[in-house]
Design a binder for these strands. Structure first.
Ligand SMILES: [Zn+2]
Length: 508
DNA sequence: GCAAGGTC
């Protein structure tokens, strides 16, 4: 069924391009890659269409004896810039905050379970910016050297059938870990009971070292090996303890502020796996009703937009959450999206190409089932039904062929439409009417000729302008200029529209 | 050549 869907839809896409351009271009579609591409496109559009809204924060720096610490508005925020300026001024005039109450809270943080492949890929990306494919390759190398257990596993469990004691004993003879292992032996008094994670695998336990001594690992392999060993050791260790302190303070006008501290009381498993240890923030000893001196106060404007993440790692996590693909294939399938030219890396960031956007659209329009994760669920049900004898392999395959046959028939009627779309995306064909900003095919003409992306950006922008006018107390023209200057927070399509509108108004 | 699932 994967083969039928994949081969037929891939060829359908390629045929459309060849008919219009006469060129052979390799394109593909599939049960796992296509929903992943659609998700990447969805995120990409949100990134490009993000319109930021200004928000205001006040930072109050306090001093007790010689120690400085920060407090921030608690449960409220200035609504407008005018308000932020006014409050800042009042705090400078009455430069103290009064302590209303102090609360302490102790937290126990249990060690995380040993790695499954997804968790390892996620940590290697966070700490070393390794791509999921790179981490998988490094882990597979370590496995083939017999240094670690099978890496293509979803399990976070270390069953007692694994001889923990002998592995840990062997690790003691590796100089890097001998001290840690000694510590673990003292701490556990030889009682080895690892934490078990929720996720499981039908065939393999969590990734763990075998105890075989590594020789001459290059730096990248050593990093992955180190993460695996430390995470394994941490699983046997005791919980860490932290203490959080929260100080609530008020100003002369009764507005509430909070200063928050965090202190590590017991390092516990962070001794073995320090990569998740929180950063400590110290707050001096204070007493209730005490007035604390303000030494500095300022407001900051933060432009907030909700941009989703788009990276190899975030796509892999999405695939895991949707339960599509397997440990062996997820990273590989993401690389296929790059190989096809649907995704590209630019300056360490993932971008979606026009080809990716248009292929995703064509699949959604003409092979909608292949664009959704539900197709995988249906496959699973078929397999179950075959297994339990409710249907047969032949019946399922025949139905798939009939279904695809009907889809391909409809597709052929639209071959020119699809071919034109993809040829334009590939730059082999010019659209008839072009967007004034980007030259893509135009779909609207007011207030200027726009493609569908800039049209959407225009609509979102015009909805947000009044909010910026109110919050920043500026004219519409100034609001446009402000948004156009928020390179980090505003989406590129929105910035382009804002600049184009400025240009149009200056010509008037 | 095109999918997705495996393995080493
Ligand atoms: Zn455009």
């Amino acid at each position: 069924m994967d083969w039928l869907w994949g081969i037929n839809v891939s060829r359908a896409l390629m045929d459309a391009v060849r008919k219009i351009t006469g060129k052979r271009t390799i394109l593909s579609a599939g049960r796992v890659q296509s929903p992943t591409l659609v998700e990447a496109v969805r995120r990409w559009r949100e990134i490009k269409l993000a319109v930021p809204i200004p928000s205001f924060n006040i930072t109050v720096t306090l001093r007790k004896d010689t120690m400085e610490f920060n407090a921030y508005p608690d449960g409220w925020a200035p609504n407008t810039r005018k308000e932020a300026i006014q409050i800042t001024k009042q705090l400078r005039e009455t430069p103290w905050l009064r302590v209303e109450n102090i609360t302490w809270k102790s937290n126990t943080i249990r060690p995380p379970p040993a790695f499954n492949l997804g968790d390892l890929q996620s940590e290697a990306a966070r700490l070393y910016r390794f791509s999921p494919m790179k981490t998988q390759k490094l882990a597979e190398d370590l496995y083939l050297e017999a240094l670690i257990s099978y890496p293509r596993t979803n399990s976070q469990k270390l069953p007692p059938t694994i001889n923990y004691a002998s592995i840990i004993k062997s690790l003691a003879s590796i100089p890097t870990y001998s001290k840690l292992v000694q510590q673990l032996e003292v701490e556990t008094r030889g009682v080895l009971r690892p934490v078990q994670g929720r996720k499981d695998d039908p065939a393999h336990p969590a990734i763990h070292p075998t105890g075989v001594k590594p020789r001459n690992l290059d730096p990248d392999h050593a990093k992955i090996y180190d993460l695996i060993v430390r995470r394994f050791l941490a699983a046997f260790s005791k919980p860490a303890q932290i203490e959080r302190v929260s100080v609530k303070l008020t100003d002369r006008h009764g507005r509430m502020y909070a200063a928050k501290g965090i202190r590590v009381v017991d390092d516990g498993w962070w001794k073995y796996y320090p990569y998740l240890r929180p950063k400590e923030v110290y707050i001096p000893k204070l007493t209730q009703h005490e007035k604390v001196k303000i030494v500095k106060v300022g407001y900051s404007t933060k432009w907030v937009s909700k941009k989703p993440q788009l990276s190899k790692t975030s796509l892999l996590k999405w695939m895991e959450s949707q339960q599509i693909g397997t440990e062996a294939t997820r990273a590989r399938i993401i690389e296929i999206l790059y190989k096809r030219g649907y995704l590209e890396s630019r300056g360490g960031k993932t971008i979606v190409t026009d080809l990716g956007m248009y292929v995703s659209e064509v699949i959604e329009e003409l092979f909608p089932d292949l664009a959704k994760v539900e197709l995988t669920r249906r496959f699973e049900e078929y397999i179950d039904a075959i297994r339990t004898g409710k249907t047969t392999r032949k019946r399922v395959i025949d139905e798939t062929i009939r279904e695809l046959d009907a889809l391909i028939r409809k597709y052929k009627e639209r071959l020119d439409h699809v071919g034109n779309k993809l040829a334009i995306a590939l730059g082999a064909l010019e659209p008839q009417v072009k967007c004034a900003i980007c030259g893509r095919e135009a779909v609207a003409h007011r207030p200027f000729t726009m493609c569908k992306y800039h049209k959407e950006a225009y609509e979102r922008l015009t909805n947000t302008i009044p909010i910026v006018v109110e919050k920043m107390n500026v004219s519409e023209g100034e609001a446009l200029r402000l948004i156009a200057s928020r390179r980090g927070e505003a989406g590129l399509w929105v910035i382009e529209v804002a600049k184009h509108l400025q240009l149009l108004s200056s010509e008037e």
